[in-house]
Design a protein around this nucleic acid. Structure first.
Lengths: 214, 214
DNA sequence: TAGATTGTTAATCGATTAACAATC
DNA sequence: TAGATTGTTAATCGATTAACAATC
């Protein structure tokens, strides 16, 4: 083994490549050079070639890259060729939105259960996915093969629930709570901090105003 | 003028500082050294001091940083001391979730209108915010001072709607669509690509499995 | 004053870009 | 074969970390 570590910067660009290659397929494009792709994506051709060569030679000199093949390969690298079962913890409006988000399934992600503390939701379901009560979490995780838990609960409960999930052996947490979960190293955490994102937007507006005389 | 450009890496860390400082205030902490903060945030103390010194000297030798003061100052840098009026375009479940998200208001963001193409939603409202029809967009933007539009519509309509918004002089777009909007330079775009995030998660699961024998 | 801790310069590390030989 | 374009090495650029003098 002992593969060379791939940098986070590279990994975070892979989904974007995947997305653009999908668009190219839809547009009927069969092959593309790093140069053409670089113009579409507004990055350097050099970066594209460097990024891809972290994982092997997908192109061909004088020809470029086969779009379909390259997309499939990037998909494999991202693990999209495998099924990933998922849980959503917290059926507020954000949990609801994720549950409704059927297009995840195209990429191998399947929501198997929804959990909430609100007894009024007991027995209900979204897109056929049952809403369960939090006390049934441990039992559910024993009976089902679940890799990912999306956390869409209030900050105040985030740590406690995360700990319960980790105890049940969950592999990864997709964290939408407004806090950083400091979990054991072997648990993967990917956070989406919506308010952080909005604040960055706000920074850019503010800076722009200052530079252009309000 | 001619302030030195602040790097994106620094800016993207500011909301996180802001968040941690808020937690410290809640915990009753009055002052903190870069070293103590660095341990909480799991970054280097050096990075914290470097980051902050991009904007001026907020600390005091031998004392550290006053938590409340520092948070206020970072808030100002992020533009959170100002009101930012917002629109949500697309009242699907994600738009719905954002509309329900009242905690944005704490930081100066106010949702003034919701827009959709679905005539069934006409006249309805969420948290007192009216849902309007897309044909009324231009008129609404003339009558109201709106800086930000959150785009929670299907990819297929993203570009067209973005162009309309830009024509009306919108300053910034919070883009939740599955595409990159290539807009004029003076329009700020902050994208939240949920499926990109999920794919990164998937990559990490897959890599972890490979490294630890499946 | 002595101790603590910043602000800031210098050193290191990593990531991006440029260049070009290999090769389809 | 000639032209195009990759894979890859080398050069550059930027960001992070370390070190320490300034100073509260």
């Amino acid at each position: 083994m002992e593969e060379k570590e791939i940098s986070k910067a590279v990994i975070s660009r892979l989904p974007r490549y995947y997305r653009y290659l999908g668009d190219l397929i839809d547009a009927g494009v069969e092959r593309i050079s790093s140069n053409d792709l670089s113009q579409k994506m507004r990055v350097t051709a050099s970066q594209i070639r460097q990024d891809l060569n972290n994982f092997g030679g997908f192109g061909q000199q004088g020809y470029g890259y086969n779009v379909k093949y390259l997309r499939t390969e990037i998909g494999k690298i991202l693990g999209l060729n495998q099924k990933h079962n998922m849980l959503i913890i917290g059926v507020g409006s954000l949990g609801h939105a994720l549950a409704n988000y059927s297009s995840f399934e195209k990429h191998g992600f399947a929501v198997k259960g929804l959990f909430d503390v609100n007894p009024a939701l007991k027995g209900a379901s979204i897109r056929g996915i049952p809403i369960c009560m939090m006390e049934d979490l441990e039992g559910f995780l024993q009976d089902h093969e679940i890799e990912i838990a999306a956390l869409t609960i209030p900050k105040s409960q985030a740590l406690e629930v995360a700990d319960r999930l980790v105890k049940c052996g969950i592999k990864a947490i997709w964290n939408f709570t407004h806090t950083d979960l400091n979990l054991p190293e072997d648990v993967i955490v990917e956070s989406v901090h919506l308010s952080d994102s909005l604040m960055k937007l706000s920074y850019n507006i503010t800076t722009y105003k200052e530079e252009h005389g309000r």
